[in-house]
Design a protein around this nucleic acid. Structure first.
Length: 591
DNA sequence: GCCGTTTTCGGCCCGACTGTTTTCAGTCG
């Protein structure tokens, strides 16, 4: 039993305990314990003989240690089993639905014995939920909207989840020496925000039938495999405990490029590309590019694209959105790269809900080669995150300025590490309230280098009201960045609807930048939105919303989205140096 | 259930907002 399964059982037990109305603090400690298991670099199984090391993990005490030991020896968690007997396993899905919480789920179960999404949907459609205490027509409609949004995205996985699963597969399969080449394809390679299943391609000169058989059996022993979906000479498919499907395909070296191209897609891109081949009297399939029976390309993707008169097209662009025409005309964009990024403008520290100090975040930024960061705590509306009110915000500015004074000289207060100068900007992530006001006095905002306005509530406002709310926020001359512009927050959430073009036009007029929030759990503005920013001349910033140093590495997800949006470095403000950035961020304040 | 202890139990992230209320429970972040 691997760490992720242990943490999953703990989390599911916590979810069920919540429905059962048990002590909320106890539930929280189960979840904290699950986090600790997830973040522990060593496996619980390895540590099983050293219980003191498990107890040393933050949030794990005697009680949870006993549960972990129980799971390691029996593979089950009795407490979870009992709750599942009392309720039903499908109930865990209901918690994913926006607008449905543990109390309502328990209430519905009590009255109707309904526990699945289908059953609850049927009750809501029939208007029967309205009979329950404190439930009216509007609540019922909200639940139905939540279910519709959930259906749209259930079964899909975040890019980061799929990436981490794919890395596990690649590491596992590298143990087979006959495999010379391993790569991911599909939507994961194209960097889509959500992934349906993971495609892994394997090739090697000595991968004959017997070797494939052996490697395929090794694949089936991959940790976390729940079910074998299919097993054949060309492809083996499994489903992991997480629900993610992973396909392993075998390719011949002579058609490696063709296979990679074919299985990377997208389907629309491939259809267009095959059409181009047909026009040239050629045929393209997963085995190569053919003139008659003669293969004229196939070992590499580059050779295939070149033979079709095209520049090689980065996978992120392969969505049949004009990339073939651009590649034919030599007009592909100079896509943004991770190394173009010079700073991160959105992060939290222990002053609100972050886990590290200003200095620790600064050290991490220096280690990643950045020239500047902005510290942007939450404002008070986000009480759960210990958001700052005006008084605390003013105090925090002083701390940031003191850290800036130390770090901009290239000196670090703490010992060790690289000594390169870093600018630390003052900032705040201020909540855009339901009526469009910013959750902080203008006098304090005026002192901030970076003011990010974000939405944290009322995602379900009608589109017109949501548009008004955003336009009003943009009117505030202190707002520099519209952040968290939530097309979708987390997989379970519905799209926030508003008039994107109107908001974009207002940003362009006001000189407000749009944020691509690179945090892997947030799918804020999507690539199509981001592409419109580039087309409309609205500057973009990419930031990680880091709550601890390692989150700074999430920048790569933001860069991936920017690449899918065809953005070039000049369109992204935090590719610029510190002075140029400040000038671009504050045009309305200082001119 | 964990933690930090004043070593035995109290505190643990809390405000905005909605819908149903007539004073607040439930959800969300």
């Amino acid at each position: 039993m691997i760490n992720r399964e242990i943490s999953r059982l703990l989390r599911e037990a916590a979810d069920l305990m919540e429905i059962a109305g048990e002590d909320p603090f106890r539930i929280r400690s189960y979840r904290r314990g699950a986090d600790a298991v997830d973040q522990c670099p060593q496996s619980m199984r390895e540590l099983a003989g050293e219980p003191r090391q498990i107890l040393a993990l933050p949030g794990i005490g005697k009680g949870l240690l006993a549960l972990i030991q129980e799971m390691l020896s029996t593979g089950k968690l009795e407490q979870r089993e009992q709750l599942l007997q009392r309720y039903r396993p499908e109930m865990l899905d209901l918690l994913q639905i926006s607008g449905l919480g543990p109390k309502t789920i328990a209430l519905i179960f009590e009255h109707f014995h309904a526990a699945s999404v289908d059953e609850v949907e049927e009750l809501a459609r029939a208007g029967r939920l309205q009979g329950l205490p404190r439930m009216g027509a509007q609540s019922e409609a909200k639940i139905l909207r939540g279910i519709a949004a959930w259906r749209k995205l259930s079964g899909r996985f975040l890019l980061s989840q799929a990436e981490s699963a794919a890395h596990g597969v690649l590491d596992w399969m590298r143990e087979i020496s006959a495999i010379a080449g391993l790569t991911v394809a599909g939507s994961l390679r194209r960097g889509r925000e959500t992934i349906g299943d993971v495609d892994v391609l394997a090739a090697g000169p000595r991968l004959d039938g017997a070797a494939r058989q052996q490697a395929g059996e090794h694949f089936l022993r991959l940790p976390g495999v729940e079910q074998v979906l299919g097993q054949g000479p060309e492809k083996t498919s499994v489903r992991l405990h997480s629900g993610l499907q992973v396909d392993l395909r075998w390719l011949d070296s002579a058609s490696l490029g063709a296979g990679l191209q074919y299985f990377t897609g997208s389907q629309a891109h491939n259809v267009a590309l095959r059409g181009r081949a047909v026009k040239a009297g050629l045929k393209l399939n997963e085995y190569g590019l053919f003139r008659g029976k003669k293969r004229i390309a196939g070992e590499t993707e580059e050779a295939i694209y070149h033979a079709l008169g095209l520049a090689w097209i980065p996978p992120e662009l392969r969505e049949s959105c004009g990339e073939l025409e651009a590649a034919a005309a030599g007009g592909l964009p100079q896509l943004l790269r991770l190394e173009d990024m010079r700073g991160d403008l959105h992060m939290h520290t222990v002053a609100s809900d972050g886990r590290a100090t200003i200095e620790e975040m600064a050290d991490a930024a220096i280690a990643r080669g950045y020239q500047y960061i902005a510290i942007t705590e939450h404002s008070q509306a986000l009480a759960m995150a210990r958001g700052l009110n005006e008084v605390r915000a003013r105090e925090h500015i002083q701390l940031i300025r003191a850290a800036d004074a130390a770090f901009r000289q290239g000196r670090k207060p703490s010992a060790g590490g690289p000594e390169r100068p870093l600018r630390i900007f003052t900032g705040i992530e201020v909540d855009i309230l339901a009526d469009g006001r910013l959750d902080m006095e203008n006098g304090v905002l005026a002192e901030m280098d970076v003011v990010i306005g974000s939405l944290h509530s009322r995602f379900d406002l009608p589109p017109a009201a949501m548009t008004e709310r955003l336009l009003r926020a943009i009117e505030n001359p202190h707002l520099r960045i519209l952040g968290h512009l939530t097309a979708r927050i987390l997989l379970r959430r519905a799209a926030v609807e508003f008039d994107f073009e109107a908001v974009l036009a207002a940003c362009a007029r006001a000189g407000v930048a749009l944020e691509i929030n690179a945090s892997p759990e947030r799918l804020d503005i999507n690539d199509q939105h981001a592409r419109r920013c580039g087309q409309a001349g609205v500057p973009v910033v990419i930031s990680t919303d880091a709550h601890q140093p390692r989150h700074l590495d999430h920048m790569r997800y933001g860069v991936t989205m920017a690449r899918r949006a065809w953005l070039e470095p000049r369109q992204v403000l935090n590719t610029r140096g510190p002075e140029e950035l400040l000038a671009a961020l504050r045009p309305r304040i200082e001119t």
